[in-house]
Write a protein that binds this DNA or RNA. Structure first.
Lengths: 346, 346
DNA sequence: CTGAAAGCGCTAACAT
DNA sequence: ATGTTAGCGCTTTCAG
């Protein structure tokens, strides 16, 4: 075990550096911040030398207080353990870090109380901006009265708050999944949604309904089952549907965890995927390729969503469309395609 | 689209509240911080009323500067996208959030340059403490000279820096995995390690070597293959081993992603898992239960590691063993057990 | 019971 | 070319 260093830091203040260099703190500040147009090289050198010797690092709290800029952004997600959101988080951090910004991570579990609490905390910490992902609960009514005036906000995904946003066209994405299911011969599609109060559920459901009608498919109410985007809810809903004698030859889950649970339940019932029941998910998280049969899913890059949100927030790249819609595509895998399934058996 | 609020915040300062309540800022501070032993209820009420009306919230930067406490901790991980680390992150955040602490998330990709950069950033932001997970690269030599004096640090996993830590007994864990492989009749165990410079590789390798010797198994150098803990590296190493004619009937991967890749490569080669090759991983990430065949793995709670680290850092719970070792166990699944595999086919 | 004043560490007018 | 001064918004002695 090597002895922990514990050397220089608490890094003496600018005042200390000034003393060592025999100048005023103003000069120190100017030199160290590049505002040294009129300071002779010799003086500058003295300052640099002193700063280096003392291992001086500006106290970012003082700087932030003075300049009104914290170089920190907040990130609020339901759960960093969810692949959808940790990819967003990585995207945000990857654009923040190179320009010296910090990212404050908060989990909400979609609990309005916690959402409000963490937003308050972030605002208290005077973040320069804030990425809000996976919000969109009941029109975010609990957030109306938080005073956003002080910080920039970018939303990821569907939402009701009037802020710039980055998202995909959820309705179109889900509709294309229905199209695919129809293309592989399915007519009765069980639809596993999230909570009805979630905007993302509403958007995606609109896509399902639209496509189902367009194709003239059955769409009795028993085919639409709300859940909570967890693997367990996918299992349970399908299990229940089967138990209640609901007939279906396809499952469309509004996220991949749910779809994975659905596959499991179908398999356990002795039915085959995709022969008896074809399953498609949404989001195309990495796990979709890991499960067997592998999961067909609506694919788009959560990582890029995160990057884009951070870029808008931090004005990187100048592509600040106020409401950016990123592309999606269908990834066909074994859970809907015999062809893919057979190919894998080579 | 509902109009963004933008109401109260920038939340007038304490001075403003003082003016509204007709008192001094001192009184405001005292009342709002509960140091109001000697302030008449009536005055207190006036202050509270004014604060509420203005939607006042203390500027945490000013408070931090003054009190020397930021109520923020730093978290450094290689990659928040890795299940091992995002579970730790969730654990840390779950203990930080209820007591009003923020968590600054940083990714390093195990790059020493980035490790140093993010630690500097966190120190600049004057975090009250810092959880360092997945470090332990080349004895962390690049971190020796950072002055840790100013903040508390807790390490997660093996490390060389002299700080409190939370971890499992990696050598024992891996040794027990070897025991299991032997118990299911394997004698030539391919060992997929991480980079040799990673402490976690060294620890786990020690366990492998110890157990292999104890059982008198073959252990030529060709059986030990370094990788980078990615799924792809697991695939590639196994593929290479097969191509080079290395014979083995078991695979022990030092993490689960690697093990999942290994299973895939074995299957692609036309061999069966577990019949021809048994595979066991380490960490038991959620994906281990999702893949088919499901993956046997050394199981322990990364979430609890994160919670414990944060608890030590923030002095929650008083269980501050300087070097806490958490328990692990073996989770037997289809990748090593025909019994489990058959059972699943019911 | 309450306020004035000092100061956390820094930057930015405003001098000189 | 450089220093002096005035705060950023807050807490905390120290005096009344």
């Amino acid at each position: 075990m090597i002895p922990g260093a514990g050397a220089a830091r608490p890094t003496g203040t600018a005042k200390l550096v000034a003393a060592h260099a025999g100048v005023s703190v103003t000069t120190v500040s100017r030199v160290l911040n590049g505002r040294a147009d009129a300071i002779p090289p010799e003086t500058q050198r003295r300052v640099f030398r002193a700063a280096t010797k003392l291992g001086y690092r500006p106290n970012s709290l003082a700087v932030a207080l003075r300049r009104g800029v914290t170089e920190t952004v907040g990130l609020v997600v339901p759960d960093i353990g969810d692949a959808y959101f940790h990819q967003i988080a990585r995207g945000v951090e990857d654009v923040a870090q190179p320009i010296g910004y910090g990212v404050l991570l908060t989990n909400t579990d979609r609990d309005p109380t916690r959402e409000k609490a963490v937003v308050d905390m972030l605002l208290d910490k005077r973040v320069d901006g804030l990425v809000f992902a996976g919000g969109g609960v009941e029109a975010d009514s609990h957030l109306y009265d938080v005073a956003w005036g002080s910080t920039r906000v970018v939303m990821v995904g569907p939402h009701q708050l009037d802020f710039p946003s980055v998202r995909v066209d959820d309705a179109a994405a889900i509709a294309s999944a229905v199209d695919h299911l129809v293309a592989v011969g399915r007519r009765r599609i069980l639809c596993l949604t999230g909570q009805p109060s979630w905007l993302v559920s509403q958007e995606r459901l609109a896509g399902y309904v639209r496509a189902v009608k367009a194709h003239g498919l059955d769409h009795d109410a028993s085919l639409i089952m709300p859940g909570d985007f967890s693997l367990e809810s996918g299992q349970k809903r399908v299990h229940d549907a089967l138990a209640r004698g609901v007939r279906f030859d396809g499952v469309l889950a509004f996220n991949d965890y749910c779809a994975i649970g659905a596959i499991d339940a179908v398999l356990r019932s002795g039915r085959r995927v995709p022969e008896d029941v074809a399953v498609v998910g949404c989001d195309d998280i990495p796990e979709a390729q890991l499960v067997r049969p592998s999961l067909s899913s609506i694919s788009f890059s959560q990582y890029e969503l995160g990057r884009a949100a951070a870029a808008i927030l931090l004005d990187t790249g100048h592509v600040n469309l106020a409401h950016q819609v990123q592309p999606h595509r269908l990834a066909v895998r074994q859970s809907t395609s015999m062809a893919v399934a057979c190919e894998a058996r080579d």
